[in-house]
């Protein structure tokens, strides 16, 4: 039997080869056959999940909720590099110095990352901004979000904090950060589906041991992950409850 492994489309393109190397390693140590299938769009991923085609996934926090609650997935590990956070930034010469300076009808540049977008909209809320009174521009990458800002095409941009920190110096210097979230509990998780249920403990043990030797440390580096940390069920349930409070809006 062969299993389908996929990675949430918000992964950094720099890590593309890393996921293939990781997949090869997984197959060797687990004795299972994984077919790595990368998807360009969140909608493609949704369809594959709906059709129960996915067995192993590096899932963003938004999809993790659905995978646990509706599809019986179990979280194996999370990256030990800190949580997912969001940044609101403006062009360095922008007249806005605090989030509260932004006004309704602002033009906001964002990406297709559902959880980063959600965190970003929470950060904009103190200014009275919400999805009904802003104009959103969906960009394909954070570099494109930055470009919209310094071209004056958008008033503020929503970034994954890690991606913001990794922007090149010249790009960073043309931006100014208004606020960075400090939520601490929103993570990507590597998750296993019901067909892998009896392999969960074995997979988790092997994953958390990665980094003990030079070879697996190198593989982790290719993913931009320092270590895999084991997670228990309640930790993930807690994050899902928290995400649900953030995405709640009264009818």
């Amino acid at each position: 039997m062969s299993y389908v492994f996929t990675v949430s489309p918000d992964f950094s393109p720099d890590h593309l080869p890393g996921w293939f190397v990781f997949n090869t390693w997984m197959q060797r140590v687990s004795g299972l056959r994984f077919h790595l299938e990368l998807m360009d769009h969140f909608s493609d991923l949704r369809r594959a999940v709906e059709a129960d085609r996915i067995d192993l996934i590096y899932a963003n926090p938004h999809d993790a909720a659905m995978l646990v609650r509706e599809k019986g997935f179990v979280a194996l590990v999370k990256p030990g590099d800190g949580a997912d956070e969001a940044v609101i930034a403006v062009s360095a010469d922008s007249p806005f110095h605090r989030v509260e300076d932004l006004e309704p009808e602002s033009r906001i540049a964002t990406t297709g990352d559902p959880d980063v977008h959600l965190m970003g909209m929470i950060l904009l809320e103190p200014a009275g901004l919400n999805r009904e009174n802003v104009t959103l521009h969906h960009c394909d990458s954070y570099v494109l979000v930055a470009k919209r800002l310094f071209r004056g095409e958008s008033d503020a941009g929503i970034f994954l904090a890690r991606a913001f920190d990794e922007l090149s110096r010249p790009v960073r210097e043309r931006l100014r950060m208004l606020v960075r979230s400090d939520i601490q509990v929103i993570h990507h998780y590597l998750m296993a589906g019901p067909r892998l249920a009896d392999r969960v403990d074995d997979l988790r043990d092997r994953l958390t041991a990665m980094g003990d030797d030079a070879k697996t440390a190198e593989i982790l580096k290719g993913l931009g992950v320092s270590r895999w940390e084991a997670v228990d069920e309640e930790e993930v349930e807690f994050m899902i409850d928290l995400m649900d409070t953030l995405s709640y809006s009264p009818a």
Partner: peptide
Amino acid sequence: VKATVIPNVRRGRIVGYTSVRRKPERR
């Protein structure tokens, strides 16, 4: 604060509640 309180439903039962507060709009 702007508070959102959610029941923690585990295996179909409410086992507790979580409140998540965020910065409110001054108005």
